[in-house]
């Protein structure tokens, strides 16, 4: 165990950990909100995120982001952000329509819904993994490249962005990390206010507490569920955008690990609890970074799983307690 390394680099490790944690938190929102309303683990939410990363990547590639700089680069990034949000939201809505609504209508057991979600997750991931073959099927193989200028095959947008670092009180901080943390926390605060104050948000909370009564009070349950998936999708899109800013590379199976970690974050904070997701995400990100400094990076992914098991044993309702309905706090 390398304590020396950990202590010498504690501030840097903490900040990069927080950046990862912020991304986990944004994805965790999708799990937490769907769980709050439907009491279902949206297993396929990780793929919602994954499609967002590709939307971001493709947009940057297609708009020639590698050669742009200054205002043009910022414009491209904003376009990429919207592309990611749009893509993730669309996937989330399709997911709700295809994999969940038929089951919710029938009031199917939760196990079946989870199995359906697992199936959907694999379909989505494999479609992306096999996109060359899918394009071939659709006869798009030849002329697709003309439009996307190589984006289809590319998994990486490394080198598009410069990432200046600067010193704060002797600690070297990456500007990207800072952007990620600020943007993610900002979005979470906005969302929290939205759920607490807006009409739609109240509908979501009411449905989470008691779907039957809520529907008697004029809340349309199907629409509420759609909105929940939509919000989760948009947040995952933002997370995907920030993830790509930081990591720059994606794959068709990038969702799985991140999804499990985001779910861990949601459980850690108390599933169904929005603020819990933020807290859980940040804690997990930092713990993971500290842990991999301590035990070696090859154990990085094990740490999240072990943490998940431990939380469920010690405090299955999470740090801040459960429930979206009572999400005043």
């Amino acid at each position: 165990m390398n304590f020396e390394f950990l202590f010498n680099n504690l501030p840097e490790l903490t900040i990069t950990g927080l950046a990862f944690g912020a991304i986990y938190a944004l994805v965790a929102l999708g799990y937490t909100m769907v769980y709050g309303v439907l009491q279902l683990i949206n297993f396929a939410h990780s793929e919602v995120f994954m499609y967002g990363t590709f939307a971001m990547l493709w947009t940057v590639m297609a708009l020639n982001g590698a050669e742009a700089d200054g205002v043009k680069l910022i414009a491209i990034l904003i376009a990429a952000l919207f592309a990611a949000m749009l893509m993730s939201a669309a996937i989330a809505l399709i997911l709700e329509r295809v994999a969940y609504r038929p089951l919710i209508k029938r009031d199917a057991p939760r196990l079946i819904a989870l199995i359906s979600a697992i199936g959907a997750s694999f379909v989505l991931a494999e479609l992306m993994g096999l996109r060359d073959k899918v394009a071939e099927w659709l006869g798009l193989d030849d002329n697709l490249d003309d439009y996307v200028s190589g984006a289809r095959i590319n998994n990486s947008m490394a080198g598009v962005l410069e990432k200046p670092r600067f010193d704060v009180a002797g600690v070297s901080v990456s500007s990207i990390d800072l952007i990620v943390i600020v943007a993610a926390v900002g979005m979470m605060v906005l969302l929290d206010q939205f759920v607490r104050r807006s009409r739609l948000g109240k509908g979501i909370r009411a449905t989470a507490q008691d779907p039957e009564t809520a529907s008697l009070m004029g809340v349309n349950p199907t629409r509420t569920i759609q909105v929940t998936f939509l919000i989760g999708g948009i947040m995952a899109g933002i997370a995907a955008f920030l993830y790509m800013l930081k990591i720059e590379t994606t794959r068709f199976d990038v969702g799985f690990l991140l999804g499990v970690k985001a779910f861990t974050a949601a459980v850690l904070g108390g599933i169904g609890n929005l603020r819990g997701a933020l807290l859980g995400g940040l804690i997990l990100g930092v713990a993971e970074n500290w842990g991999s400094a301590l035990f070696g990076t090859e154990w990085r992914d094990v740490i999240a799983f072990v943490l998940l098991v431990l939380i469920l044993l010690v405090r299955p309702t999470g740090l801040l307690g459960e429930s979206l309905g009572k999400a005043r706090a």
């Binding site: 089951l103 079946i112 199995i115 199936g119 959907a120 694999f122 379909v123 073959k133």
Partner: peptide
């Protein structure tokens, strides 16, 4: 296409014939 097909099978079965 193995995984794709099994994924589809899970979704379809859960919906049609749980």
């Amino acid at each position: 296409f193995r995984v794709l097909v099994f994924g589809l099978a899970l979704v379809v079965l859960a919906t049609v014939r749980p």
